[in-house]
Computed example of a mutant assay.
Amino acid sequence: MARTRSDSPTLFDLPVRPDFQMEAALLREGLAPVAGLDEAGRGPLAGPVVAAAVILDANRLPEGLDDSKRLSAEARDRLFQAIIEMAVSVSVASICAASIDRSDILRASLEAMRRAATGLCVTPLFALADGRDVPPGLCCPARAVVKGDQRSQSIAAASIVAKVTRDRMMTRAGGVTPAYGFEAHMGYGTKRHRTAITEHGALSRLHRMSFAPLRHLRIDNTASGGQTVAQSLEQLTEG
């Protein structure tokens, strides 16, 4: 995996909110369009890791862009819609739990970002990727930006799109596997989630069996109502 030297900021170097300065500098160098890349869902015990790539219109930036973790759910939903309407291009990709288990969460996250960048309808000339690593195999040169979702508006926009998309996926998963309460915790290891795993077992194709709390648990292949989990998950992609 390619790793660039990080310009990791100190706490007091971070702007109050992300700005467009890094993108503007790249645009002045003729490296337009610039894509922001970020992911959501590295830490949960269940569900996919989801990445987004966003190319913002420098003349039409949504107001209030910020790290998705610093926004309320209502603000994220509002900004998600604004980004979809105002951005030059938006792309989303995900890596499922089984693929995470076959690799590891870092590689899966970087691969999701690569796929998201590849899916943009406009090919970027440069990408800004949140974190310490540049995703391997990108379609353009890139820079890793530590705390990028708090520094770059393009990365912040990608973080919002990835977070909202993943939350909606997990909410739908909660609808077909109600015993686990995914709509409340989005797959993170809360007390409610861990209790459900203890009582009902892990769900095949949804829980990350390579993660430490799950490695030795049984797999429950039946969801509520007598459907198999595979059948239930197929419903999530209908329509």
Rank of each mutant, 00 (worst) to 15 (best):
C140R: 01
A87R: 07
D13Q: 15
R107Q: 13
V229N: 07
P62M: 06
D57M: 06
A46R: 14
M170E: 09
A2T: 10
V34G: 02
A202W: 10
H207T: 04
K163D: 01
C96A: 15
V34F: 11
L138K: 05
T171S: 12
L37T: 02
V16H: 05
S109I: 02
L233D: 07
R168W: 07
L56G: 02
S210T: 12
Q150S: 15
I160W: 13
A25I: 03
G181Y: 12
A52N: 03
I155K: 04
N221D: 13
P33G: 10
L233P: 09
A230K: 12
A116Q: 10
S154K: 02
P9H: 12
D130F: 11
Q21M: 06
E238D: 06
M86G: 00
L61K: 05
P33W: 14
L110C: 05
G148R: 13
S210P: 00
G137A: 08
T198V: 06
P178N: 07
A223R: 13
P62K: 12
G201Q: 09
L45S: 01
G174Y: 13
G30S: 11
L128H: 04
F12R: 13
A116E: 07
L37W: 11
L203S: 06
F12Q: 14
A223F: 13
Q21Y: 03
R70K: 15
T165A: 14
K147D: 00
P33V: 13
A53G: 07
A98E: 15
C140S: 03
L233I: 08
E111N: 05
A142Y: 02
S232C: 13
V88A: 03
A51I: 08
P178V: 09
M169H: 10
M169I: 15
R208D: 02
R215T: 11
G47S: 05
R218T: 09
V54W: 12
R205T: 03
D149V: 14
S152P: 00
A179M: 11
L26N: 04
T10D: 05
G174N: 10
G30K: 08
G189C: 08
R114T: 11
P9Y: 13
G187V: 12
D13R: 14
A97C: 04
L11H: 08
D38Y: 11
L214T: 04
R208P: 01
A212E: 11
G30L: 10
I83Y: 06
M1H: 11
G175H: 10
H216C: 06
P124A: 12
G175F: 04
R205Y: 15
L61A: 01
L203T: 04
L206W: 15
R3L: 08
A202M: 14
G36E: 07
A2R: 12
M22H: 01
V50S: 04
L125P: 00
V176Y: 06
A184E: 12
A52P: 04
A97W: 13
V54S: 05
V122P: 00
L128M: 08
I95E: 06
I84N: 00
G137D: 07
A97K: 05
Q235Y: 05
E234D: 12
T10P: 00
E234G: 10
